[in-house]
Design a protein around this nucleic acid. Structure first.
Lengths: 224, 224
DNA sequence: CCGCTTTGTCACCGGGCGGTAACCGGGGCG
DNA sequence: CGCCCCGGTTACCGCCCGGTGACAAAGCGG
């Protein structure tokens, strides 16, 4: 389940992202309106969380543009006391709104309700090239080989890698996505997870063909 | 299809009632919380529409009480700007919500979606592959074997599993479906229920062929 | 009120998941 | 040349998870 979080306030973006990540969602972030539109087009998220006040293109414009060719659920973020903005947002096709400040619990409850209502809940399979990741089954199928069972952590790792297939994903992003925190000492965790995952999915774990390392940067998934 | 509308505002109640009646639903009305509970018990509606602000018993109490022994879809009505109330409602087991004012069209669309999702339109017998579940008889027939008597909980568990035959259903969903939103952390209940059910339906309960576990995720039913 | 069935709770076990440390080998650099 | 940083690998171990048995509590029909 992919969620796009668009907000120019870095702290808020991180908080929202963290909350959703911990709840098992795959989070994509954007810092401004144009970035948000780009991400919607590229990543086809299942839910979009939009701050109204953003540089680039305002939340309104973004919302309107998205609605031109998508019915993806949109949740708007506003500051208290901007009722008329709110009404306008709803008229532009937003599905729900949240006034800052809000608690993580609130956010989660509303997000879940939106996804449930949209009926997007069932489709939890992410695929790219020869790889197919099923979040419900906790399994990964490569080409026509029988699916491989994954643990929770392996699944999370692959979610982010597969969503960025072909591109290198930094160790920090992986750490945050999988464990929810970063730190130099935690490198070992990632090392281990990658190693164990390679034992499972690589034909020859010593010379990885799929889960490749980008020295000094991170890892990337090769799906071709 | 029976719908209960509970709201202390007579005008709103009538409007909602009228909308639903026109759409072909059988509408029951209640003006306060206690009346709502009474009606739920007496009439067993297929959908409950609850205003949060009501005399008698608040929408929360009503919602919670209903959820103690029923999983009938519940839609909450709120006025704009009561975020935390809303969250509480969703956490208490409400399925959807609507902020006043809303259009009749919206109301209808949401109500239909809820009923569809609840699968209330289906018959009392559910079958897939070699398995046939009869909700009235509380029995499960596998292939040509004589039907097996089921308890209430076993029946509910199988309902959800059979409706998603072949796919993994998460432990959380099962817990909510069977016990109705309490003990969302109580894996023990599910563990036991599965164990007991396996004793009944599996040829060799130690190596399940039908009710299989998806480690770290949930359970799934194999109907082939 | 009794007895049976159903359901909730507790305790235990075995296996695997995941965190931690230590070691190895290679490449960059002083 | 030797140091050290980085990533891979091996090993160990605590703990969580799922399965199981036993028993208490609750529900229900006679």
């Amino acid at each position: 389940m992919k969620v796009l979080v668009a907000d120019d306030d870095r702290d808020l973006r991180d908080l929202v992202g963290f909350t959703l990540t911990q709840a098992g969602y795959l989070v994509i972030k954007a810092a401004d309106g144009t970035g948000a539109l780009q991400s919607v087009a590229d990543e086809a998220p299942d839910l979009v969380i939009l701050d109204i006040n953003m540089p680039g293109a305002s939340g309104f414009q973004v919302c309107q543009t998205i609605r031109r060719d998508s019915r993806v659920p949109i949740m708007m973020l506003t500051v208290r006391g901007e009722e008329e903005d709110l009404v306008r947002a709803l008229e532009l096709g937003a599905d729900d709104y949240l006034t800052k400040p809000f608690s993580p619990r609130t956010l989660l409850a509303r997000a879940k309700a939106l996804l449930r209502r949209a009926g997007t809940e069932g489709a939890s399979v992410l695929s790219n090239g020869r790889m197919r990741l099923d979040a419900d089954e906790h399994s990964l199928a490569i080409a026509d080989a029988p699916p491989i069972r994954l643990t929770k952590l392996e699944l999370r790792l692959l979610q982010l890698l597969l969503a960025n297939a072909g591109r290198t994903v930094s160790s920090d992003r992986l750490l945050i996505h999988v464990w929810g925190h970063r730190g130099s000492g935690d490198r070992q965790l990632l090392k281990q997870l990658v190693h164990r995952l390679r034992q499972k999915i690589e034909r020859d774990p010593a010379t990885p063909q799929i889960l490749q390392t980008a020295a000094g940067a991170g890892y990337k998934l090769v799906t071709e």
